[in-house]
Design a protein around this nucleic acid. Structure first.
Lengths: 215, 215
DNA sequence: TGCGTTATCCCCAGAACTGGGGAGGGATCG
DNA sequence: CGATCCCTCCCCAGTTCTGGGGATAACGCA
């Protein structure tokens, strides 16, 4: 499709050296090095812009999406001088996972064909999802998800909303001791000792969802 | 494309907690009513599944994506008996802000053409983004998702692993009071009062991720 | 230079959680 | 029938959180 460069990455900072993030890049060496040096992960305007939308966008449109600091212009200029031309970035967000994106770029001076955006959007999404599946498969053989009872799930969903046992009891119309007991049982099933972990494990295996929690 | 029903909805909108979420639906009246009546805590399994991926999926594949509670099967059966057949759902996530999906469904009994998925994916994404832009234009300015400091994120990540303040202090090599303070500050930034909610909010907007927590 | 931010530490009181123990009633299944 | 699961309720002791106050030092930015 006429692109010279691509980058399929998780937008992870290097706080956690041990973490397993996806990163496939063929950007110019100079630029990749500069990027790492300056810890641009959080600062890169392209990444920031990708956090504000679900759709792919051309880099030339970034100014209309987020407000650019002088520093951001410097970053973009540095990228150009490293040989990167205009490009598309397709964001990829999954709640509870590191944000990521898939980018395609031209050489400096070459023109971008906006017509291609829909197709690039598709290719980028598929590529990211494929990489994500591989990454996930190589990591987590996490213990099989235990099945919670209905009442337990209701309690956990309310715990995840920050309710106390007493509040949950009022909402469900039962005694506080009962709620405490359901949560004890639920913790046992997951083999965890804290309600925070209980909520997160239930979120992870889909017993509850962000929709249940944040509104 | 042969679809009879569609639904374009925000599951939640953190930044606009009022009544401004997008919702366009032409599902059977019976089903919409039933949907509203029923569940307060455990959401639609289709929605839950949409939180686990960036790509569109066929409803018939949901079982492979999340663990289904018997109640979920009941929900799906109820949808079918209201006239909804198989369908596609395209998730749409923006970190810290919106969480939604765009669905297309057949009538009961009609077959879904899996080949169409890529095209549907595109249409769904565009439709969602268009609706989002309109909704955004009609609403007030957008509050930025709170940004945690590096230390705060480290503490939150460990909270999400079920550590106590004292344990976190040992791990980070600081005093327990310091950890308590970081978590106080982090709770303030998100405007929450419980560490469980803190961990979940940080998860939702990508400050921490499941891979940081569950190894 | 002053101001804001960050990181570090401290005290305290009241609320909330956690891990033990126990117990009764109803439903389902073989 | 007995076994098993689920929901409900109760007691207690110890630990942990939470929300108020404080404080100091380092850093960058204007």
């Amino acid at each position: 499709m006429g692109f010279r460069y691509f980058a399929l990455v998780h937008h992870i900072d290097l706080l956690n050296p041990g973490s397993t993030a996806v990163r496939l890049v063929n950007y110019p060496r100079d630029w990749v090095d500069a990027f790492e040096e300056g810890r641009l992960y959080a600062a890169d305007p392209i990444h920031r812009a990708s956090h504000t939308t679900t759709m792919g966008f051309a880099w030339s449109k970034v100014e209309a999406m987020i407000s650019l600091h002088p520093r951001d212009h410097a970053v973009l200029a540095a990228a150009r001088s490293a040989g990167l031309g205009d490009g598309f970035t397709i964001p990829a967000h999954v709640p509870g996972e590191v944000n990521g994106s898939c980018s395609f770029a031209m050489r400096e001076g070459e023109d971008l064909d906006e017509e291609q955006l829909p197709l690039v959007q598709l290719v980028g999404s598929f590529a990211f999802e494929a990489a994500r599946k591989i990454a996930r498969a190589t990591i987590a053989p996490i213990a099989a998800a235990p099945q919670l009872t209905e009442r337990q799930i209701e309690c956990v969903a309310l715990v995840a909303r920050g309710k106390t046992d007493w509040e949950i009891a009022k909402i469900l119309g039962v005694g506080a001791e009962t709620v405490t007991q359901h949560l004890k049982d639920a913790r046992d099933r997951y083999g965890v000792t804290k309600r925070t972990m209980l909520a997160i494990r239930a979120l992870f295996d889909g017993a509850i969802s962000f929709t249940d929690i944040l509104r």
